[in-house]
Amino acid sequence: MGEHVVLFNEDGSRTDGRGLDELRPIRIKVGVLSNAQGSAYIEQGKNKILAAVYGPKEALPKHISLPDRCILRCRYHMAPFSTTERKSPAPSRREIELSMVLRNALEPLVMTSLFPRTVIDIFIEVLQADGGTRCAGLTAAVLALADAGIPLRGLAAACAVGKADGKVIVDLNDLEDKYGEADMPIAYNPTLDGITLLQMDGIMSKEEVEQALSLAITATQKMHKMQVDALRERFSVQRRET
């Protein structure tokens, strides 16, 4: 706030040269960690994020377990060096909220009733942050779950949409996130037509929210294809090895 930050170039493109509905370059790799049952790594713009899945395993202490399904534990965490100013490694209120929001977004995808009395741990570690970390983190976490061989109802990809300088845009970078007018992270499962993560802050009219929503759906559909490709790459490599 305060001083005005320029978010668009003279030719109407964004500061990083993108069009309004253009995603940042995305690179995804599945199966990157040796100890986790499932893992994935994503780069989206300057974001670098790792996700790992452990489980299903026995839920201990026993009182946390549920008799009819497995429970999920989720931790979203930012490395101290992931931001311009050092971030304390202790979980902030923001990280605690996001861990919950991400768990809520992942839970409907997992066929939890197949693994009663167990727990699945999901860790999302942000190594470098560049805006939209919860979304990129979720996109990676879903792949880590798939990599762990946990039955899912479908994949979901997430992308932030929002508004900057009066224009509705897709996949906000750090600058647009900080100085833009609105930020709306969305996770969408295209096979079941369901939104599993929905948040918004900043100011948007009803029409703008609707427009942003439809842009988010197109963007997450594109990302869904990248997720499928990343999984295909992972398991075709494995087939060659065996």
Binding site: D193, D201, S205
Partner: peptide, 18 residues
């Protein structure tokens, strides 16, 4: 105009419902 939106809890919501 809207200034905050949040879905809490699991489950999926179709975009047309939003």
């Amino acid at each position: 105009r809207f200034c905050a939106i949040q879905k809490n809890g699991g489950g999926m919501i179709p975009p047309r419902k939003v």
